[in-house]
Design a binder for these strands. Structure first.
Length: 511
RNA sequence: GGUGACGUGGCCGAGUGGCUAGGCAGAGGCCUGCAAAGCCUUGUACGGCGGUUCGAAUCCGUCCGUCACCUCCA
């Protein structure tokens, strides 16, 4: 009765069942970002793929061990032959306008890695079991490089230690980049080293006593190459052979190709059984770039534009991870509405929680079926658009049959919440580790008393004052005044809603 | 040049041989002091051309178009 979890495997080019080595226990690794600036929505689209895999695996009863790293070592940038000391991403971050406030790269990485984790929580991603940092695993990386040297898969030159691609015949099997010419171009090292035996060889260790981040090694002062950290950390926490390795599509080559070579040269066994890659997103039909002005960080959307975090999350998963995805503000606006509907349905479902199981309720039965459809869509290569459509169908059923709900409505909504993480729940429940209500632009009831209102911030007090004035005007049927106040509130980006229980309001995002 | 993906109605986006995807926008209705929200109803489609088949958006061929990666990038 075990469910099959099918995912596209880059290694084979096919959608195939994900089969954990240890039955019922998924051990997987997902490549995290280099923390030289704030994470953008593209980073998170990729992290969200891993998050959905985690949630889906748990929903079918699998145990999970999930590791995702923080790369806090600056690796080399491209075309940097002008500066043989090798300026890297972290160093560049330090020189940027934003980065100038940091005393050194260590402060910079601390700042951005804590920002990453706060974005992570605000977008309702589940915590990994381990979030290792590259700088805290230098020793393991050095040990692995020593082993690679010992077995003849690596060699030393005056400027570094290199992996010998020739020693690993399988090189290129993940990306299909077998042609020597293409490899030569692609893996060419930033700092050209004439002592390299083969142009395809890539660096495991760079000797550099000038680098902003450096460690002592058997080969002198320097820093690790940019592929070694991930394979080493994955194996340190998950074992030599893992079930799944995920990341953005750009990592297929050379990063993941090199990880495979490093790991398998030593173990002679498959490093990861399954490889999953998330396609890059576009924004408004174009490649996201600062120059085009369509570059968005998570915090810019949420803090500056006031978008509900879960709406950002929903928008980012509204396309399947493997298809080209166009992120638009129109999708984001739709998502805001949907998140509100999910929230409304959750409230209704929660109030039906204790109504028991009404066998005669067709609504309950329908919702049970809907949940299965949502789950099945995710089990089918993370078909999120189909899953969201099914979830919305359930939401519509709940909103349209308020009086016929039983406890299965609650089961449905919390199930959907656990699976997709897009439901604004009123309190933390189950796998959702943190309360999300405060993070959302949820509807707020107007404060009952003036003292209650004045205990909050001045803007809120002002809003509630206006709403109370409007209510008075409505009581005396002075609708002209009431509408004038409503317009005034709208100008402040405040949307109000009248109901038999009074007036509630919410701040609209400005997108 | 190499590798891969994609082309579905005004827009986003499922569907992979016959059976309603869903959403947004549009239209009509219910509700409302009027709105908003919510609910109900509703139109429009499968890039071109060949082929396979009783039957193709769905399979095959071909052409056209779009995009991505191959260089730091999720």
């Amino acid at each position: 009765m075990d469910k099959e979890f099918r995912l596209f495997n880059t290694l084979t080019g096919r959608v195939e069942p994900l089969v954990p080595i240890e039955p019922g226990h998924l051990r997987f690794y997902s490549c995290g970002p280099t923390v030289y600036s704030y994470a953008h929505i593209g980073n998170f689209r990729s992290f969200l793929t891993a998050d959905l895999i985690l949630r889906t695996a748990r929903a079918i009863g699998w145990k999970t061990t999930y590791v995702t790293n923080i790369t806090d070592v600056g690796h080399l940038t491209d075309d940097d032959t002008m500066d043989p000391s090798g300026e890297d991403r972290m160093a560049r971050g330090l020189q940027s306008k934003e980065g100038q406030r940091f005393a050194n790269v260590w402060d910079l990485s601390r700042h951005y890695s804590s920002a990453l984790q706060s974005d992570w929580h605000i977008l309702n991603l589940l915590e990994p079991d381990v979030r290792p940092r590259a700088t805290e695993h230098i020793r393991e990386q050095i040990q692995t490089i020593e082993q690679l040297l010992a077995c003849g898969a690596a060699y030393q030159t005056s400027s570094g230690v290199y992996f010998s691609v020739e020693s690993f015949p399988n090189y290129g099997s993940l990306s299909g980049n077998k042609a020597a010419e293409a490899l030569e171009l692609a893996v060419r090292d930033v700092v050209v080293d004439p002592e390299k035996k083969d142009p395809r060889d890539f660096a495991l260790w760079k000797k550099d006593a000038e680098h902003l981040m450096q460690w002592h090694s058997p080969w002198g002062w320097g820093f690790p190459g940019w592929h070694i950290e991930c394979s080493v950390m994955a194996q340190a926490y998950l074992g030599q052979e893992i079930d799944l390795h995920a990341g953005g599509e750009d990592l297929i080559f050379p990063h993941h190709e090199c990880e495979i070579a490093q790991a398998e040269a030593l173990t002679q066994r498959p490093f990861s059984r399954h490889w999953v890659h998330t396609r890059f997103l576009q924004v408004e039909g174009r490649k996201m770039s600062k120059r085009l002005g369509n570059f968005h960080t998570v915090r810019e959307l949420i803090n500056d534009r006031g978008v509900a975090p879960l709406a950002v999350r929903l928008a980012l998963i509204s396309g399947q991870y493997r298809k080209p995805f166009n992120f638009t503000f129109s999708t984001l606006r739709d998502s805001e509405r949907h998140v509100q509907r999910f929230g409304k349905a959750f409230e209704l479902a929660e109030s039906a929680k204790n109504r028991g199981h009404n066998k005669a309720s067709m609504v309950g039965k329908t919702l049970e079926d809907r949940y299965q459809s949502v789950l099945n869509a995710l089990l089918d290569d993370l078909n999120t658009p189909a899953a969201i459509a099914q979830a919305l169908d359930g939401v519509r059923t709940i909103l349209g049959h308020k009086d016929q709900l039983d406890n299965r409505a609650y089961t449905f909504m919390s199930g959907v919440s656990d699976l997709l993480g897009i439901v604004p729940t009123t309190k933390a429940h189950k796998t959702t580790a943190h309360p999300t209500k405060q993070l959302l632009s949820v509807n707020r009831p107007v404060a009952q008393t003036l003292s209650e209102a004045s205990s909050v911030d001045p803007l809120t007090a002002k809003i509630e004052e206006l709403i109370q004035a409007r209510s008075e005007a409505r009581k005396t049927r002075n609708f002209t005044l009431a509408d004038k106040i409503r317009d005034e509130l709208l100008a402040m980006n405040i949307e109000i809603k009248d109901s038999p229980n009074g007036t509630s309001w919410r701040k609209k995002s400005n997108i």
